[in-house]
Amino acid sequence: MWTADDIPDLSGSTALVTGASSGIGLATALHLARRGAEVIMTARDRARGRVALERVRAAAPEGRVELRGLDLADLASVRAFTDDLDRPIDLLVNNAGVAMIPRRTTADGFEAQFGVNHLGHFALTGSLLPRLLAGQGARVVTVSSGAHAMGRIDFDDLGLENGYRRFGAYCRSKLANLLFALELQRLAGGKLLSLAVHPGPTATSIMRPGVFTRPVTSFMRLALKAPEKGALPSLYAATHPGVAGGTYVGPGPRALTPSPRALDEDLARRLWIVSEELTGVRFAALTSRP
């Protein structure tokens, strides 16, 4: 069985992990640093981020790790973040996200789960594309979920103004993550590898008060796997030398088959075009569409 001990030597590579202040993102950053990667951790909450940074530095004292602020709910923050980066990126792990929150909007007016989980990462990846293509063999790993299979995208109601359900909005955002990852691979060809992952049921900050009732939250914290195990699909997709672009990695880690909706190329193309229009970010360096 593949474990974090099987991660190859990553010396000389630079990895960027979003949402690295806790949970799966923190575990991902820690193991990448342990194996020699230079790791850029991002966090919206700088105070929590600094605590996480010190945890990684303590666990990987020889590692090169830094923290940068990034708010995926604000496209201006994404632009400022990418403008400030001055080095090639070999690995981008699109991990950050929100889940099953009450309806709210981002700084740019998008429904928050769609705006943060999908549009924020779409804009970040597109803005970082020149840095990803500056080296060879770059990878983009996007954290989706098995919940994507229950997702639906109504392009006439992207703001979910005609009815908002927390879980439905979450499933939609995870479907968008998987559609994005697979379409990115189709467009990139051999220029980079794009993969998606399903961490499986993991005890992360999604278990915060207010998402579920207290008894359900307590039960789920006991029943769910630790973030260290939830991070294995991300780490496998990010580092395994034999994994192919377009693979959807789940617990095990092992390759999973996406839902039929996630494999709908027409849906993926439409989502991509809409995402370009909403964010103003275009992946100009990739193969042009016919």
Rank of each mutant, 00 (worst) to 15 (best):
M1T: 12
T3P: 06
D6E: 15
D9T: 11
S11F: 06
S13R: 15
A15H: 05
T18E: 03
A20I: 08
A20N: 05
A20W: 04
S21V: 00
I24C: 08
I24Q: 06
T28N: 05
L30T: 15
L32I: 11
R35L: 09
E38Q: 14
T42A: 00
T42E: 01
T42N: 02
D45P: 00
R46M: 09
G49S: 00
A52M: 03
E54R: 10
R55A: 15
E62D: 15
E62G: 15
G63F: 09
V65D: 06
E66H: 03
L67K: 00
R68Q: 02
G69E: 15
G69D: 12
D71P: 02
A76Q: 14
R79Y: 07
A80W: 01
D86T: 13
P88D: 04
P88N: 04
L91C: 11
L91V: 11
L92C: 09
V93E: 07
G97S: 07
I101W: 05
P102N: 12
T105M: 12
T106M: 07
A107Q: 12
A107H: 07
D108W: 10
F114I: 06
G115C: 07
V116P: 00
V116H: 02
N117I: 06
H118L: 14
H118Y: 14
F122R: 13
L124D: 10
T125R: 08
T125P: 08
G126D: 13
S127Y: 07
L129D: 12
L129A: 13
L129Y: 13
R131Y: 06
L132N: 09
L133W: 13
Q136D: 15
R139W: 05
R139N: 07
R139D: 07
V140T: 11
T142F: 08
S144T: 06
S145Y: 02
S145F: 01
A147V: 10
A149N: 04
R152T: 14
F155Q: 03
F155R: 01
D156Q: 03
D157H: 03
D157M: 06
L158D: 08
G159H: 03
E161A: 15
N162H: 15
Y164A: 10
R166V: 04
F167K: 09
A169F: 02
A169L: 04
A169W: 02
C171P: 04
R172P: 06
A181D: 10
L182V: 05
L184I: 12
R186M: 05
L187A: 14
L187K: 15
K191W: 09
L192H: 06
L195Y: 01
P199G: 03
S205K: 11
M207A: 12
P209I: 13
G210C: 11
G210W: 10
V216E: 09
V216I: 15
L224R: 05
A231K: 02
A231H: 04
L232P: 00
Y236N: 05
A238Y: 07
T239G: 07
T239Y: 04
H240G: 03
P241E: 10
G242A: 15
G246P: 01
T247C: 03
G252P: 00
R254M: 00
L256F: 00
L256Y: 00
S259E: 04
D264G: 02
E265P: 00
D266C: 03
D266P: 01
L271S: 08
W272R: 10
W272C: 09
V274R: 12
L278S: 08
T279C: 13
T279A: 11
A284Q: 13
A284R: 15
L286S: 12
S288Q: 14
R289C: 06
P290A: 02
